[in-house]
Amino acid sequence: MGDGQRPVRLRPPVHTLDARAVGYWRTLLLLMTVVPVAVLGLLGALIAPARWWLLGPAAAVAAVGLGCALLLPPWWFRTHRWEVTEEAVYVSTGALWRQWRIAPMSRIQTVDTVRGPLERAFRLSTVTVTTASARGALRIEGLDHEVAAELAERLTRITHQTPGDAT
C-alpha cells in the first residue's frame, strides 16, 4: 500500500426503496412535529402570562418540522439504497452521515420482517438482517411489503444452504 492509491469509491447499491417511502417518512416527520407543537400551542392558549414564551417555540418547532418534512425525505430516498447479490447484502443509508453496510451471505443468522402501524398504512415493511456480530445488523426500511417478503424468503433460503455457524 503506497501513497499512489487509485481513487476508488463505493458504488451505490442497485435498488432504491419503494417510492411510497417518501410519503411514509414525510408523515412520520409531520407526526413527530405535530405532537410537541400541539402541546405547546395548547399550553400557550391556556396560560395567558406565558403565552408568547410558549407560542414562539411552537412556531419555531413547526417551521423546522415542516422544513424537514419537505426537504429530507426526497434526499433520504436518493441515499437509502439496497442490493442483494449471491454473496452479500449491501445497504446504504444516511444523508449527512452516510453509512454503507456489507454482510456476506455466509454470516447471516436471522432475517426478520417488521411492519409498524404507519408502515402498514403505506404497505411498507422493514427487513432486518442480523449477523453474529452485536454491531453488524442491517436494516432495509421502506420496502414494498411484497418485495420485503420475497427478499426475506430468498435470504432465508440462501442462508439455510450455507454451512457453518456464521461466527
Binding site: L96, W97, R98, Q99, R101, T131, A132, S133, G136, A166
Partner: peptide
C-alpha cells in the same frame, strides 16, 4: 463478518 463504512459530511 462484514464491513460498515461511515462518512460524515
Amino acid at each position: 463478518i462484514g464491513w460498515t463504512v461511515r462518512q460524515s459530511l
